[in-house]
Write a protein that binds this DNA or RNA. Structure first.
Length: 112
DNA sequence: GCCCTGACTGCTA
DNA sequence: TTAGCAGCCAGGG
């Protein structure tokens, strides 16, 4: 995937996440071959939220390793994201976190 | 080419 | 479980 920018690579992987499942920034980074590049994954997704309705990338299915959606400032957006997930069948625990152990995407059968 | 920023992660307290 | 700290890497000015 050297012909694509890091952005494009991230978007490609995120699109592979099926409805009802979620993945962490670290997961995406690892799939791309950069286990410690989670920040850039989030950054690539941040570029999408400028026009969430003009992309086919399910950015709302990407959460942090704690199963939470802790944005910097826009907490309301985090809740909106959580609601989108719930609408797709993802469950939240009593603390309002995504049930990672239950819905975490396991792309073990895919390769590029 | 240098410096700063950032939707993160893992460890320790 | 939550809070603080340091490390990593790519893009933008």
């Amino acid at each position: 995937m050297r012909d694509e920018s890091f952005y494009a690579a991230v978007y490609r992987v995120v699109r592979e996440v099926p409805i009802g499942q979620v993945a962490t920034y670290g997961d995406i980074a690892t799939i791309l071959g950069h286990p410690r590049n989670a920040r850039q994954v989030g950054w690539a997704l941040a570029a999408l939220r400028a026009a969430p309705d003009h992309t086919d990338v399910p950015w709302h299915r990407i959460i942090n390793a704690q199963g939470r959606i802790s944005h910097r400032g826009d907490t309301w957006r985090a809740e909106a994201q959580a609601m989108r997930l719930v609408a797709e069948g993802v469950e939240l625990d009593d603390a309002g976190r995504i049930a990672l152990a239950k819905h975490r995407w396991a792309p073990l059968n895919r390769r590029h």
